Amino acid sequence: MDSLFVSAGVVAVAEIGDKTQLLTLALAARYRRVAPILLGILLATLANHGLAAWLGAAVAGWIGPDLLRWIVGGSFLAMAAWCLVPDAADEGAAESRPGWGPFLATLVSFFLVEIGDKTQIATIALAARFHDVILVTCGTTLGILLVNLPAVLLGDVAAQKLPMRLIRAAAAASFAVLGGLTLWQGAALMPG
């Protein structure tokens, strides 16, 4: 169960102020329909993070546990640094094609914008760390939903009121702690 809760917590903190949350705010402001937007986010995240978790677990099986520990630890430290860089909404990311409703616009745009995003990279690292595709995918999806639900409900008001610098620092600290612990475990296991 640690993999579920750690994945949800880390990704929730990392998602605050992320470009996908900004996309959610834009979609909420445009469509003003909670259920189809949340369903689109849920399905897009399950698909995207399910693939990412599978990749992370597969990579963990291909390389040895010692090398994996160093790669995952370094990845978490890189994520800590990345979290300190503010995201901006991609231009046109919230635009939908004519005739697309809020569900399809959210599903497609959220899936595409999440590709290569820090929460997707974190999902890969978390699955490699915990070796549990299902619980990591559920955890990261839960984290995304926890952060995006208020964004859908509150729209632009939330984006203007949250202390983004403090939130980015908290996300960076979470990843730094995970990276440090992973590297420390790797160093402790080295023959000396």
Rank of each mutant, 00 (worst) to 15 (best):
L55C: 05
G56S: 00
G56W: 02
A57F: 10
A57K: 08
A58Y: 14
V59K: 10
A60R: 12
G61F: 08
G61A: 11
W62R: 14
I63V: 14
I63G: 06
G64C: 08
D66I: 14
D66E: 15
L67Q: 12
L67I: 12
L68D: 01
I71R: 05
G73Y: 01
G73W: 00
G73N: 01
G73D: 00
G74D: 01
G74H: 01
S75N: 03
F76A: 02
F76V: 00
L77V: 10
L77H: 04
L77T: 07
L77A: 11
A81V: 14
A81E: 04
A81R: 09
A81Y: 11
A81I: 12
W82P: 04
C83Y: 02
C83G: 15
V85Q: 12
V85M: 13
P86D: 07
D87F: 05
D87L: 03
D87E: 11
A88P: 06
A88T: 14
A89F: 05
A89C: 12
D90Q: 15
D90W: 14
E91A: 15
E91N: 14
E91M: 13
E91Y: 13
G92V: 03
G92L: 05
G92Y: 09
A94P: 03
A94L: 08
E95S: 14
E95G: 09
E95W: 11
S96D: 08
R97D: 07
P98G: 13
P98H: 12
G99K: 05
W100Q: 09
W100V: 07
G101C: 01
P102L: 06
P102Y: 07
F103G: 09
L104C: 06
L104G: 03
L104V: 14
L104E: 02
A105W: 02
A105D: 03
T106H: 00
L107R: 10
L107C: 05
F110T: 02
F111P: 05
F111K: 05
L112R: 11
E114K: 05
E114W: 02
I115L: 15
I115K: 07
G116A: 04
G116W: 00
G116R: 01
G116E: 00
D117N: 06
K118N: 07
I121C: 02
I121F: 04
I121G: 00
T123W: 01
T123I: 03
T123R: 05
T123Y: 05
I124H: 02
A125Y: 03
L126W: 07
L126Q: 07
L126K: 09
L126E: 04
L126H: 06
A127V: 00
R129K: 13
